[in-house]
Amino acid sequence: MRIAVDAMGGDFAPEAIVEGVVMATAELPEDVTVVLIGRQSVIGELLKKHNSESAATIEVVHAEDVIDMGEHPTKALSQKPNSSIGVGFKLLKDKQVDAFCSAGNTGAMHVGALFSIKAIEGVLRPCIAGFVPQINGGHAIMLDIGANADCKPEMLAQFGEIGSIYAQYMFGVASPRVALMNIGSEEQKGSLVAQAAHQLLKDSRRINFIGNIEGGDFFASKADVIVTDGFTGNTMFKLGESFYPLAKQRGIEDEFIAKTNYESVGGSPILGVNGNVIIAHGISSPLAIKNMINLAIQQVKADAYTKIAQVLA
Rank of each mutant, 00 (worst) to 15 (best):
S83V: 08
L239Y: 13
E161N: 05
L124C: 04
N291K: 15
Q188M: 13
I85P: 15
P153T: 10
N291M: 03
I17G: 09
I67W: 09
T260K: 07
N136P: 00
G216A: 10
A167V: 00
L124P: 06
I120P: 08
E214P: 12
A129D: 00
F12I: 03
M170Y: 11
I58S: 06
I293D: 12
K259I: 00
V265M: 14
M1Y: 09
G104K: 11
A26T: 07
H198V: 06
D98K: 12
A16V: 05
G122P: 14
S102Y: 10
I283V: 07
G211N: 07
N105V: 07
L295M: 15
S41Y: 04
M23D: 13
S242W: 10
N51R: 12
L180C: 06
N261K: 14
K152N: 03
V265H: 00
G163C: 01
E161P: 05
S191K: 07
R250D: 01
V311N: 05
Q195V: 12
A280R: 11
V132C: 02
K152T: 05
F159P: 02
C127Y: 01
A108N: 07
M292Q: 12
N82E: 14
V32G: 07
F209E: 01
L91S: 12
M23F: 05
A157Y: 11
G107D: 01
H198L: 04
A7Q: 10
G137K: 02
L239G: 12
E263H: 08
A63E: 09
P73D: 10
P269I: 01
S102H: 10
E71W: 11
V227N: 01
L239M: 14
F115P: 08
G70R: 08
V61M: 09
E64W: 13
S175T: 05
D303C: 04
I210E: 02
A313D: 15
M69N: 14
A119K: 15
K202A: 09
I289V: 15
K118A: 03
N212C: 05
N294V: 03
D254T: 11
K259D: 00
D224C: 05
T74M: 12
K49S: 05
F256Y: 11
L36Y: 12
T106E: 06
L287C: 06
M109V: 06
G88N: 10
A4I: 05
N182Y: 02
I135Q: 00
G112A: 14
R177I: 00
S185K: 06
M236H: 01
Q298Y: 02
V111I: 14
F171W: 02
H110Y: 13
